[in-house]
Deep mutational scan, measured.
Amino acid sequence: DHIPWITAVLPTVIICVMVFCLILWKW
């Protein structure tokens, strides 16, 4: 059976995008 890697990667991607947007917003 396949491991849904997207389910494991998606939260990390969302957190990175939120942090990236927060850094851009504070500049």
Rank of each mutant, 00 (worst) to 15 (best):
I15V: 04
I14C: 11
W5Y: 09
V17L: 08
T12E: 08
D1N: 11
L10Y: 15
C16V: 06
L24P: 08
M18R: 01
I23F: 09
A8R: 11
K26G: 04
V19D: 01
P4K: 15
L24I: 10
I14K: 02
I6D: 02
V9K: 05
W5Q: 02
I14A: 12
L10C: 13
I14Q: 04
I14N: 15
I3D: 02
H2R: 11
T7C: 07
V17P: 05
W27P: 07
T7F: 04
C21R: 07
M18W: 01
L22W: 07
V17C: 13
M18F: 11
A8E: 13
V17N: 08
F20Q: 00
V19N: 00
L22A: 10
C21L: 08
V17F: 03
H2I: 12
W5P: 11
V9Q: 06
L10E: 03
I14F: 05
P11N: 01
P4F: 15
L10V: 10
C16M: 01
F20S: 13
I14L: 08
V17H: 03
V19F: 12
F20C: 15
D1V: 07
L10G: 10
T7S: 08
V17S: 11
I23G: 11
F20Y: 10
L10M: 04
P4I: 12
T7Q: 15
L10D: 01
P11D: 01
I6G: 01
C21A: 06
F20A: 06
L24N: 13
I23H: 10
W27R: 05
I15L: 07
V13M: 07
P11A: 14
P4H: 03
V17A: 07
I14E: 01
H2W: 09
I3P: 04
W5C: 09
I14S: 14
K26M: 15
C21I: 11
I15M: 09
C16E: 01
W5T: 06
V9E: 04
T12I: 05
L24V: 14
W25C: 15
I23Q: 07
L22K: 02
L10F: 05
A8N: 03
I3Q: 12
V17W: 01
L22R: 07
P4C: 15
I15E: 00
I23M: 03
M18H: 12
K26I: 13
V19M: 15
W5E: 11
P4Q: 09
I23R: 09
T12N: 12
T7V: 09
L22P: 09
I23C: 05
I3F: 13
W25Q: 09
W25K: 05
I15G: 03
I6S: 05
C16N: 05
M18V: 10
V19Y: 11
V9H: 12
P11T: 14
H2A: 10
I14D: 00
M18S: 14
W5I: 06
I3C: 02
W27A: 12
M18Q: 02
D1W: 04
P11L: 14
K26W: 02
T7Y: 10
V19I: 08
C21W: 15
K26T: 10
V9C: 02
C16K: 05
L22I: 13
L24M: 15
D1P: 06
P11K: 07
T7E: 03
V19K: 01
P4E: 02
V9Y: 02
V9S: 12
L22Y: 10
I14P: 11
I3L: 15
V13D: 00
V9G: 06
L24S: 07
V19R: 00
P4M: 08
T12V: 06
M18G: 05
A8I: 03
V19L: 15
P11W: 04
L24T: 09
L10H: 07
L10K: 03
W25S: 07
C16G: 03
C16S: 12
V13F: 08
C21H: 10
D1H: 04
L22E: 01
P11R: 00
A8L: 07
H2G: 08
V9N: 03
V9D: 01
I3H: 08
I15C: 02
W27Q: 06
C21D: 01
W25N: 11
L10W: 15
W5A: 04
I3T: 14
L10I: 03
I6C: 14
I6E: 02
W27F: 10
K26Y: 09
V13P: 07
I3Y: 10
P11I: 14
C21K: 02
I6N: 14
V13I: 04
M18L: 14
V19T: 14
W27G: 03
V17I: 14
L24E: 04
A8M: 08
I23D: 00
T12A: 06
T12R: 00
W25A: 10
V9T: 08
F20K: 04
L24F: 01
P11H: 09
I3W: 03
C21V: 08
V9M: 15
V13K: 02
K26L: 09
I6T: 13
P4A: 10
P4G: 10
K26F: 05
T7I: 06
F20R: 00
C21T: 07
C16L: 06
W5M: 01
L10Q: 03
W27V: 02
L22Q: 02
I23W: 01
V13A: 04
K26N: 01
C21M: 03
I14M: 11
V9I: 15
I14V: 14
I15Y: 01
V13C: 06
L10N: 02
V19C: 06
D1Q: 15
D1A: 11
I15W: 01
C16D: 00
L22D: 01
I14R: 00
I6H: 09
H2Y: 13
W25V: 07
W25P: 04
I14H: 06
V19Q: 00
I3M: 04
D1F: 05
I23P: 09
I23L: 15
I23E: 01
F20T: 13
I6Q: 15
M18K: 04
